[in-house]
């Protein structure tokens, strides 16, 4: 049986349902963790899935266990979200599934067929930006920007539910997301700016 199941709480590592897999990886040392599927599982069991991404339907043929991330990047040619860890630990792969911020790197494609997937490009466009995208540009948050999907998609889902959040609520909503460049203070400014607009 494959151990990786999506649909659980994907918000941050302290609630990470895949912790055992990660510990297993640690115990194995710096060699490949074998966490996604039973060794030798036959890849020829591809099935057809219809994915609704940013409002358009796409039919792909894939291993049901394949994470959504690879369907988006490799089958649909969408360059965001990003691969950051494949372990639901960093957030770089975050998309919305039915409006819920979801780590696509551990969510099997079979679990999202028939659900609404929205990526960063679907969240807003230069012509019609999401308030968080506007705020990110105004605050010039980005250093490298590789982590951006996680912060923006998670914050967007959070601000949809929570109006006029406190700083503490924002931090709690975003805890666990990784940014290696250390833009956290700029992220806080941008999320507060967007929250003001969305209030």
């Amino acid at each position: 049986m494959h151990k990786c199941v999506g649909g659980a709480d994907k918000t941050h590592p302290s609630r990470d349902k895949y912790g055992l897999a990660v510990l297993e990886a640690a115990l194995r040392g710096a060699s490949a963790p074998r966490t996604y599927f039973a060794a030798g599982r036959d890849g020829s069991m591809a099935e057809k899935f219809t994915l609704r991404v940013n409002g358009s339907d796409h039919t792909i043929e894939a291993d049901p266990d394949m994470p959504l991330l690879y369907a988006l990047r490799d089958d649909l040619g969408m360059s965001n979200p990003h691969f950051g860890c494949g372990l639901s630990q960093c957030g770089a792969c975050t998309v919305h599934v039915d409006g819920v911020a979801t780590r696509s790197c551990v969510t099997p494609v079979s679990r999202v067929a028939g659900h609404d997937v929205v990526t960063l490009q679907g969240l807003g466009t230069p012509e019609k930006p999401h308030p968080l995208q506007t705020a990110y540009v105004e605050e010039q948050v980005v250093q490298c920007g590789y982590c951006l999907n996680g912060w923006v998609m998670t914050a967007a889902a959070f601000l949809n539910k929570t109006k006029k959040p406190t700083d503490g609520q924002i931090r709690e909503a975003l805890t666990g997301l990784k940014c290696r460049c250390g833009t956290h203070t700029a992220i806080m400014r941008a999320v507060k700016r967007a929250a003001d607009k969305m209030a």
């Binding site: 912790g19 990660v22 990886a25 710096a30 860890c85 630990q89």
Partner: peptide, 11 residues
């Protein structure tokens, strides 16, 4: 080997 075994700063 990952962010749990090499924690970095959190928001």
């Amino acid at each position: 080997v990952d962010w749990l075994t090499y924690p970095i700063v959190d928001i």
